[in-house]
Design a protein around this nucleic acid. Structure first.
Lengths: 342, 342
DNA sequence: CAGACAAATGGTAGCGCTACCATGATTGGG
DNA sequence: CCCAATCATGGTAGCGCTACCATTTGTCTG
């Protein structure tokens, strides 16, 4: 005789308990839960009753081990506090909340090495799908993604060579559009102010530069950047640096909205008239851009939608219908406001 | 003879492969990886070599199943985009990045029902620890936490009756302190403006009310709240409502910094002098509070630290040394700035 | 130097679930 | 009315790992 029932597990009901109580085989319980269509109405009801009575909850670990597939979406973002990624993640969560999939977020801290490490960790679980921010994976990270054995969606940007699928937009075009808007509004000595300067910021800068060069107005001294993480207060400081370096500045395209807000505050403080003396354009169009005084022109990006669409694509691929369009460009919109209306 | 080696798993190296290659038993490999001290120097080296050569990565699902314990921290927060929780989560991630623990975040959307559901899901994995925001769990959620069989840390607030451990501060005291500061600065018709009004906001409101009543100045018409989620633009609207309702308002204590910023912008727009005509106090002390013009007085909370401390406590409990102080009050600090300096 | 004990290693038996392959019952076409 | 093709169900054998209990060897004590 075996030990009474003091399983190592700790006595939670198992599928075998449910099967016994419902008078069916364990496998039938498993099927009733995962593919109800394949079990007769009668048994399904019996099984459900047993599940309810026992309070049975399937063990996801056992499930993952037996099926060689965990019901987990791995998500890799470079920052948890940056509102931009938080919105993407929120979109992912909302899209997955009614599914059996759990979500595991990794924070790469903008580090390729950390990304590799996390990919290794995530991959070891055999996730159902991977969603990663950015398209600049290290060669080794890329290899990990290619061999992940699950759908992979790169988000935030679009580029020519997806590992699998992509959802995002062109940061280069965003930067160029923002800058062209300032040019059209009549600004000439337009600076670029950027913090963090991750690859996406670099491409926005490149877009800025392209627009300025096309207008014959580019000057390297107009560019003020730092690798330091972005913040409103940093925006203020960078703007002061920029002004000190280039007092004739009459416009700025900011890396993101935090920086733009910092610039606006410094303008208030220094009694610089916006938009008369300085035009300001931000990037992402956070809620506060429409409320500030003056309101700030910004490039609206569809962050939440990037999250929801990436999940939709991954889910379709899991279901066996990978979208034929593997690259989804959600674009952006320039939202003109008071900060550039002169 | 069994099938060549086409295991269902997909051919990744397993612990048995490593053991074979290193010429030891599987159990010894397992030990070498988890408790290196219990394996001799020699074998440890051999095993490490085999691991490296094969590129072996342990399967966390198998591990969790065999040991009845997943190396997962479950984290439940009401919002992913609210900077406050994002900071807590960041603290949790940073504290856990060098540990073997994975993190799983659940978004409760401020819903008790959703919290129960997620607790059920998380519990089914037998997590190593649970960190949940707030102290107002439903009775059934509380029962789930009590029976989780792992350390539990309630974060963001302190209260009298922890499930297990607690890290946070008193929102009531925070609200009272903010309001008393406005009173001391000479403001009299001080309004409360709040969005979302989750339990923590309610307690800040209660603190406001206590201070106002103590000064004999409380008037229900001074309170403007909405269940709508907080945002800068909402702050502006609520302030306009408050002013319409009570034109003699001379100060506002805002639910949070977003609201405060919205109030400030509306003051700019309506040419209301801050701090002369209106004093403003925010809550949380986000970076932008110090940069705005005028800078905004706020109650600084230690969000990142709440994250790191909660992990430290959970880790200690896992290691078998639960802290004797089960409630950790990290306090807050009133940061006086221009918005209340008259 | 016997006996006790610790340290290092290994074998066996699951953890709770599902893939895979039966099995028996039912259908339906010729 | 037979045989194939389906459907509903179940048994068995793992998935990859670790808990538990040996076993072996070396070391210490009296």
């Amino acid at each position: 005789m075996t030990r009474p029932r003091s399983r190592r597990g700790g006595g939670r009901p198992t599928i075998a308990d449910v099967a016994r109580k419902a008078g069916v085989g364990a496998i039938t319980v498993s099927r009733a839960l995962r593919e109800p269509g394949r079990v007769s109405e009668d048994l399904r009801r019996q099984i459900q009753a047993a599940v309810d009575e026992l309070g049975y909850v399937p063990d996801p670990n056992a499930r993952a081990l037996a099926s060689a597939r965990a019901e987990v979406f791995g998500v890799l973002v470079p920052s948890l506090t940056n509102n931009v990624f938080a919105e993407v993640v929120r979109g992912i969560y909302d899209s997955l909340s009614d599914s059996p999939f759990r979500i595991q977020i990794g924070n790469t801290h903008y580090s390729g090495l950390e990304e590799e490490r996390l990919l290794q960790v995530f991959g070891s679980q055999r996730p159902a799908a991977l969603i990663v921010a950015g398209i600049d994976q290290t060669p080794s990270a890329r290899r990990l993604l290619e061999n992940a054995g699950c759908p992979v969606v790169q988000v935030m940007e679009t580029g020519p060579d997806p590992v699998d699928m992509m959802v995002g937009f062109s940061h280069f075009d965003g930067g160029r559009t923002a800058t062209e808007h300032l040019l059209q509004a009549g600004y000439r000595r337009i600076g670029f102010i950027g913090a963090r300067m991750d690859p996406r910021s670099q491409r926005r800068l490149a877009g800025y530069r392209a627009a300025m060069e096309a207008a014959g107005l580019f000057d390297p001294r107009l560019v003020t950047t730092t690798p330091v993480p972005s913040s409103v207060s940093l925006g203020r400081e960078l703007f002061r640096d920029a002004l000190a370096k280039m007092p004739t500045l009459d416009g700025v395209f900011c890396n993101n909205d935090d920086i733009a807000l910092g610039v606006l505050f410094e303008c208030h403080r220094a009694s610089i008239d916006v938009p008369k003396q300085i035009g300001i354009v931000g990037f992402n169009d956070l809620d506060m851009m429409q409320v500030s005084f003056p309101s700030i022109t910004s490039v609206r990006t569809h962050r939440y939608e990037i999250g929801t669409r990436s999940v939709a694509m991954a889910l379709a691929a899991i279901a066996g219908n990978p979208p034929k369009q593997r690259i989804l460009d959600l674009g952006f919109e320039l939202v003109r406001r008071e900060s550039t209306a002169r």
